[in-house]
């Protein structure tokens, strides 16, 4: 089964929730569980779980469950990124790409920028 390698960037203060890292690489299977579970077991190739193509909504949950180090409520609200966080897919506003429904492709560059920090 194919793997996706994604470049994920954080800016505008959101990096503080991710151990102050600005750029990370995330490896995800191209197919992920339909129930959005993010544990290692569920991501195994031979799991019995039903699968769907990995999309941006899944990546958000994966980042929250696997890489976020503090205050999850500042990143995710009602199952999606909190209002006030901008998301870009290969430098394009995710609102033009179907938001959470956007299906991830190998080598995609995903950027999260908080607008909520002081100006």
């Amino acid at each position: 089964m194919s793997q996706l390698s994604l470049k994920v960037e954080f800016g505008g203060g959101i990096e503080l929730l991710f151990s102050k890292k600005h750029t990370i690489t995330v490896e995800l299977p191209a197919l992920v569980p339909t129930d959005d579970s993010t544990d290692d077991q569920s991501l195994m190739e031979d799991t019995a779980k039903e699968k769907k193509p990995a999309n941006l909504a899944y990546l958000v949950l994966y980042l929250r469950d696997r890489l976020l180090t503090e205050r999850a409520e500042l990143f995710v609200e009602n199952g999606t990124v909190r209002p006030g966080i901008l998301v870009l897919v290969n430098d394009t506003d995710w609102q033009l790409e179907g938001e959470g429904d956007y299906e991830l492709k190998d080598k995609d560059n995903i950027v999260f920028i908080s607008t909520l920090h002081g100006g």
């Binding site: 800016g11 505008g12 901008l86 870009l88 506003d93 950027v111 920028i113 607008t115 100006g119």
Partner: peptide, 9 residues
């Protein structure tokens, strides 16, 4: 604010 942040980015 969204446009200001996009502009800066």
């Amino acid at each position: 604010e969204k446009e200001i942040v996009m502009y800066a980015y």
